[in-house]
């Protein structure tokens, strides 16, 4: 079942690659949050209340509700046009995303470590690199945040793959940090929206030698 969820997660990456509208991005991010929730739920060996609340907070509340709503608010407030406006056509994006997935599959296949849950590893690495790719090729600043969130989701899957036992305190700290950084990024997007007419990274090229 977990495998099915993870393969669906990979499909959402393809979907982002060909999505035209920013709102679609946001929805896909929300869906990814739900998928991750179920993945963690199935991975959990023992369900106690504290763990459950933590996971709920981390995936459903944070990834699927709070952040998408916040992003939608930013888009509405700054009157950002709905088209995603990538530098490269979606077709090229799709090909590159696909080749990223294939490359990670090949890479993972080359690893000789029997203790590794490879499908997690593939999904994590693919979304890490796909997120980076989205950041590089999108012109809008909001889509950069979305790329960052895709990377965060990848890291989340990766930490599941390794099964790291971080202390709860550290876990909460990490969650809080990411949440605050998204918030701060959002605030700065608002500032940029107030300062410049158009929210595009082309405005942010004044600092150079």
């Amino acid at each position: 079942m977990v495998n099915v969820l993870l393969i669906t997660f990979l499909m959402t990456l393809f979907y982002i690659a060909i999505a035209n509208r920013i709102l679609t991005f946001i929805r896909v991010l929300a869906v990814q949050g739900v998928l991750l929730f179920f993945v963690v739920l199935f991975q959990l060996e023992e369900i106690n209340t504290f763990n459950l609340i933590l996971i709920l907070m981390e995936t459903i509340f944070f990834k699927s509700i709070a952040v998408p709503l916040f992003l939608a608010y930013i888009i509405k407030r700054n009157k950002i046009t709905r088209e995603a406006e990538p530098y490269l056509p979606n077709f090229v994006s799709l090909i590159i995303t696909t080749s990223i997935v294939v490359a990670t599959i090949l890479l993972t296949n080359a690893i000789k470590d029997s203790a590794l849950d490879k499908i997690f590893f593939i999904v994590a690495l693919s979304s890490l690199f796909t997120g980076l790719y989205f950041i590089i090729t999108r012109r809008k600043i909001v889509t950069h945040i979305m790329g960052y969130l895709v990377i965060e989701n990848g890291v989340f899957v990766l930490s599941l793959a390794v099964g790291t036992e971080m202390t709860h305190l550290v876990n909460v700290g990490i969650m809080l940090d990411i949440f605050v950084s998204v918030l701060v990024l959002g605030i700065f997007v608002n500032r940029i929206g107030n300062t410049f007419e158009e929210m595009s990274v082309d405005n942010l090229t004044n600092l150079k030698d």
Binding site: M11, F14, I18, N20, N90, S93, L94, T97
Partner: peptide
């Protein structure tokens, strides 16, 4: 946009391939 939607099928079938390997 047709080309990209059709190519998406290839991506999806790659996932099928990957699932079969699993």
């Amino acid at each position: 946009h047709n080309a990209q939607y059709i190519f998406a099928l290839t991506s999806v079938s790659l996932l099928i391939f990957f699932g079969v390997l699993l």
